[in-house]
Nucleic acid binder design. Structure first.
Lengths: 125, 125
DNA sequence: CAGAAAATGCAAGTCACTTGCATTTATTAT
DNA sequence: ATAATAAATGCAAGTGACTTGCATTTTCTG
């Protein structure tokens, strides 16, 4: 049973209002303005929960560096600028078709995929 | 100037003889048999170097969990069993065609991508 | 409104990886 | 070969993200 807590709502509000994907630390700092006593633990626990519930996506910005973004209605992938971290989403996931073929070839049941693009945005080029 | 050291060669040998991708810790444990005094630091430094040189690929098994695999001649992607970690490679990278379109749509210069499939192998299903 | 379960905050812990630095070792120029 | 020098190593300590245990607080349900 998942309860509606002030902390959880504050975290979600921050993510909803963000112009870009935020790291756990950034979310922590922003939520702290309204909830000075909130613990980092709470941020992590809620981000895990929200990710499980598919409310947000945990996005890998680079090795061991993740940020969170509100989920679009449909499955999305992201293109992250290596310089300024500006992120845009890619409309269509090209892999659903591909996945079926790989499954047939390998005998694996494919249940998930990661796909992430990296580059430089117009400004940073 | 990159030198040929015993440690570096031992690390590479371990990776070459491995039947599956190995984590830094696994490599450390295996190299230690021949080089008991080797430091974990050395493993990490060499894995970074070998990755830069594109001798090996750093493969993300899951969040914050990486393993290393000898590079094939060509660009590859991998399909990892979530249960037993058995890994197979996917022959063709489906992304090259897709990339040009995304670049045109977004104005980004795309320099890298991650693509990883997850599932269950025949045995684990 | 009471009781039970869920969530929080705090402190301490873990784990992978990094850094600084003195020492060793591989290459090179002699 | 040998000495000079630059790279690589090993060790110890540090970092940073995230986790865990536990007592306390809060939400929800009956």
């Amino acid at each position: 049973m998942v309860r509606k807590t002030k902390q959880r709502q504050a975290i979600l509000t921050v993510i909803q209002n963000a112009a870009k994907p935020l790291s756990a630390r950034e979310i922590y700092n922003m939520v702290k303005v309204q909830h000075p006593s909130i613990a980092l633990t709470t941020i992590y626990r809620n981000l895990d929960l929200l990710t499980e519930q598919q409310v947000v996506s945990k996005l890998r910005v680079r090795d061991n560096e993740y940020s969170y973004i509100l989920n679009a209605k449909e499955h999305r992938h992201y293109l992250v600028c290596l310089s300024c971290h500006k992120t845009v989403s890619v409309k269509k996931c090209p892999f659903d078709v591909f996945a079926a073929k790989v499954a047939a070839d390998t005998g694996y049941e494919i249940v998930a995929h990661d796909f992430q693009l990296y580059g430089y945005c117009r400004n940073c080029r």
